[in-house]
């Protein structure tokens, strides 16, 4: 019996997959063991103190007073009081938390529409760029080719300029120069961030298309598909799978990037925290909360992306 069990374990160890899953299991179980020990210590201490309270009430109270009178106890109590006061001042008084809530909504609004616009722009620009590279040999001189070449040049310039200048500068130029007459700040921000994101998305998609083995393209063409059909049925499904994580990452980057919207007077999440800070003169709590909100959002989407990646990897087998 024992011999048989050992053989099964050995066999499983030979495949990398099983070893990998047992590794993650080990890691997570170690964390939970630590957590359980911590809980046990806290529980034991509480039960011990409760027993002490029952047995010798006065001594138990004296003991508590001794510890709260020492420096550590005072400091902890002080922190708690301070935190409560800060919390009240920065968030509760005059409904200041609404700056954060409204700011978050603005951040989401800009991110959502800028992502849509960026994706659309990215798809258009990347199709022009990669088609130009792939079709180079097939194009014959003519008016269509001439227009196509000009479009490609425009796309190249767009990519170079957008990726070569800081986002803040682009936002400022969009607001104070290009759309100076527009009163709709959010729309300007969406356009600025959308145009910015489009350049990165375009390069991500193009890299995905270029990463597909040229043999796939040739196989599609040799079966009689034209260029567009080969792209739609053969190349894009494979490329999309390859770039989905990078695209999701670009979305996460964009969420954080919108934090510069305050430069043009937009009250996004960051600006909301900043306004609270300027009213209460206490920087600690508002900025920490703003940072924590971004962190939670990013962690949420990162988790989503990794789940997605796992799904995609599974579907390959």
């Amino acid at each position: 019996m024992i011999d048989e069990d050992e053989r099964i374990i050995e066999e499983k160890d030979e495949t990398g997959e099983v070893r990998h899953s047992s590794f993650t299991l080990e890691k997570s179980s170690r964390t939970s063991v630590l957590f359980a020990i911590l809980c046990l210590i806290i529980a034991a201490a509480s039960i011990g103190y409760a027993i002490l309270l029952l047995v010798d009430y006065d001594y138990a109270i004296e003991l508590l007073r001794f510890y709260t009178d020492t420096g550590i106890g005072k400091a902890i109590l002080g922190w708690i009081n301070d935190f409560n006061a800060q919390f009240k001042l920065n968030l509760i008084d005059k409904d200041r938390y609404m700056y954060l809530v409204n700011g978050l909504l603005v951040t989401f609004e800009i991110t959502f529409f800028a992502t849509l616009m960026g994706f659309l722009l990215g798809v258009i620009v990347s199709s022009i760029r990669s088609s130009h590279d792939k079709l180079e040999e097939e194009l014959r001189p003519g008016f269509g080719t001439f227009i196509f070449n000009i479009l490609d040049k425009i796309c190249r310039i767009y990519l170079t300029v957008i990726r070569g200048t800081p986002t803040v500068v682009q936002l400022l130029i969009a607001y104070f120069v290009i759309f100076a007459s527009s009163k709709n700040k959010i729309l300007v921000a969406i356009l600025a961030f959308g145009i910015n994101s489009g350049a990165y998305v375009a390069e991500i998609i193009r890299s995905g298309i270029m990463s597909i083995d040229p043999g796939q393209f040739e196989a599609g063409r040799s079966l009689g598909f034209n260029y567009v059909q080969t792209m739609i049925y053969i190349i894009i499904p494979q490329a999309f799978k390859a770039v989905l994580p990078a695209l999701a990452n670009e979305f996460i980057v964009l969420i954080k990037e919108t934090s510069v919207s305050g430069y043009v007077g937009l009250q996004d999440l960051t600006k909301g925290g900043n306004i609270i800070l300027s009213q209460t003169y206490s920087p600690f709590l508002p900025l920490l909360i703003v940072a924590a909100i971004y962190l939670v959002i990013v962690m949420f989407f990162t988790k989503l992306v990794s789940i997605l990646e796992g799904r995609l990897r599974n579907s390959e087998r």
């Binding site: 043999g215 599609g220 040799s222 009689g224 494979q238």
Partner: peptide, 25 residues
């Protein structure tokens, strides 16, 4: 010649590659 429809003609010419080039998806 530029006038011929190469996609139509390729439907009548099967091709087999060194590296198979099956569609993995």
């Amino acid at each position: 010649s530029p006038e011929s429809d190469i996609n139509k003609l390729r439907q009548n010419m099967g091709m087999v590659f060194q590296h198979f080039n099956l569609f993995p998806h």
